[in-house]
């Protein structure tokens, strides 16, 4: 029986799609059968990040509406044969998603794979609600800045009240994933600290992904960062986070990054 994992945040541009692709690929590398579903109807991106944009025939909406069968719409990854993508529709409206249709797809997928990753759209509207609806676990992607943290808090509240599990009185297991963490700026006190984020969100930490050019580079070539350059700092952080997701205990490393000359000269700010 598969676990349904929603990757959500409330705020846009924090790295939901990048994280879905990276963790989805890392889980597949670990031998799990993984399906990643793009719920961002109308603004799909996961197909680009996964490098499958030229192979899309049917999409999520087609399956919801019964125009296509689920196996027809699933796109198998070219690099990992136990990783599939269910793309969103770019032309349809978000209202084309129905709760009944999404429930049917999740139910069908649950019997055939190990992990179902739902890439949520930004916001708290229909798409985001349906992406989290059937979740067993949730990754809340947060940037170290106040607006992102507050939006994450809002989303955690909804995970605790609006999901199918919450309505049955069960819990959705939640993890915070801090992305775009800039060690140099954190050292200068320009970012909200990890301790503060965790204190505000009162939710366990899954990992800290450093801000890196490697993420953008991987997106541009259509490859999850964990496949494109597994030795890079963000890829290692995603691989560690994935191990934690699978139940391993991995020490949490705060990415420090190399200090430049200016940092050495001007290391500490006077009070």
């Amino acid at each position: 029986m598969a676990k349904v994992l929603v990757v959500t945040s409330g705020k846009g541009g924090v790295g939901k799609t990048t994280s879905t692709a990276a963790i989805g690929a890392a889980l597949a590398q670990a031998g799990q059968r993984v399906v990643v579903i793009d719920f961002d109807v109308g603004l799909r991106n996961l197909d680009l990040v996964m490098g499958a944009e030229r192979r899309v025939v049917f999409d999520l909406i087609n399956v919801v509406q019964g125009i296509a069968k689920l196996p027809q719409a699933l796109i198998r990854d070219k690099r990992l044969d136990n990783l599939w993508l269910l793309p969103a529709s770019q032309t349809k409206d978000k209202d084309a998603l129905t709760e009944e249709g999404v429930g049917r797809i999740i139910k069908e997928l649950r019997t055939n794979c190990d992990w179902i990753l739902c890439d949520s759209p930004a916001g708290i509207e229909r798409g985001a609600m349906l992406a989290m609806r059937h979740a067993d676990e949730a990754i809340i992607v947060t940037n170290p800045e106040v607006s992102s943290v507050r939006d994450s808090d809002r989303i955690i509240g909804m995970l605790d009240s609006k999901t199918a599990r919450a309505e049955k009185g069960e819990r959705v297991e939640k993890h915070v994933l801090i992305t775009r963490y800039d060690a140099a700026r954190a050292a200068r006190g320009e970012m909200i600290t990890i301790e503060d984020i965790l204190e505000i969100l009162a939710t366990p930490l899954l990992g800290i992904i450093p801000e890196s050019q490697d993420v953008l580079r991987a997106s541009n070539v259509g490859s999850p960062v964990t496949l494109n350059n597994p030795a890079s700092a963000p890829a290692r952080a995603y691989l560690d986070a994935t191990k934690r997701l699978l139940g391993e205990t991995v020490p949490m490393l705060v990415p420090s990054g190399r200090k430049g000359l200016m940092n050495l000269l001007l290391g500490r700010r006077a009070a």
């Binding site: 708290i124 507050r150 909804m158 605790d160």
Partner: peptide
Amino acid sequence: DSPVRSGQSVIFTEGDVTVLGSVGSGA
């Protein structure tokens, strides 16, 4: 006995409210 998250609204006009946890910004 859980934190009150951003966007949540707790209305209890009959008496006292006790929260064992934080009340988030926007709650």
